[in-house]
Design a protein around this nucleic acid. Structure first.
Lengths: 146, 146
DNA sequence: TTCGTAGTTGCAAAGATTTGCATAAACTTA
DNA sequence: TAAGTTTATGCAAATCTTTGCAACTACGAA
């Protein structure tokens, strides 16, 4: 089955309507190596769906996040960026505030943490948004910039 | 020593310049019970400093975050909100996506997690931004809305 | 296959946040 | 305390994101 079709099926299973816009936006995000901004999604997806509107991109990524199909990443100051969730390989982000590089972090321990929080608070946790900021191995060896 | 003076001193110790804007913005955030939006900070602080500009509020909270003096909280869709860091009592947030209520979460375990990440990745972690979303005890008992 | 309902989209406008630049203020040093 | 350097501020404009509303479309039921 094609990548787009499988994604559309997942969307449907989770109770979301499958539209051309959603399918194409999802494929656009899926085919990107790195995290991609709303503007980039818009430009990429519009090549295949010229009438697409930027507001639709924003509403769609919000839905896709609700469906647990994409990750959102916000690094200080810069616009939000998105990437496809890989259910086999959940992760959180490690952002270097000096050089901006992004590392991914396995989330098993965060999952375990979330389950523990559920027990102590009676919350039902749906999504864990974790971003760690700091200095990467290279930048932390340089003298402080300021 | 007054609250504002103590905060200004902390700011100075961390290498940031102490200006009237920063002091008043910091006090405005400190005197709020709950998390407060940029607009609210602006309105509150402007009563004491009429010439204050909204852009300054945004730049200031960015600096204050860099200084580790405030927490930022983003709940899906809504504008960013801020609160004073309490070093005796670090915390992360638990947001109910149904009723919007916010709970605070002790962060000892997150701290421990961050230290472990430092060991495995050679990163130096400065800030941990964690927001957990889900359903609170009350909302999870209601039937699904959609 | 057709119909009805509820969820989606496009558009335009509003709201939130960031940025460039000239001016002003804070802090260091003498 | 005055001068010089560096950083912060205000303003206006740009950018990013959300929202209201009318038209449209997906999809379950008939």
């Amino acid at each position: 089955m094609s990548c787009g079709k499988r994604l559309a099926e997942q969307l449907h299973e989770r109770g979301y309507r499958v539209t051309a816009q959603r399918t194409i936006i999802l494929e656009t995000i899926a085919h990107m190596e790195n995290h991609i901004s709303a503007q980039q999604v818009y430009e990429g997806a519009r090549e295949r769906l010229p009438g697409l509107n930027l507001a639709t991109v924003y509403r769609t990524v919000e839905s896709l996040k609700g469906a647990g199909m994409i990750n959102m990443l916000s690094t200080g100051g810069e616009p939000m960026r998105f990437s496809l969730c890989d259910p086999e390989h959940p992760h959180s982000h490690l952002v270097c505030r000096e050089c901006g590089s992004i590392f991914e972090l396995e989330a098993e321990e965060i999952e375990a943490f979330a389950r523990r929080v559920e027990e102590t608070t009676s919350f039902r946790i749906d999504s864990v948004h974790l971003t760690l900021e700091g200095l990467c191995q290279i930048c932390k060896q340089k003298p402080a910039a300021s």
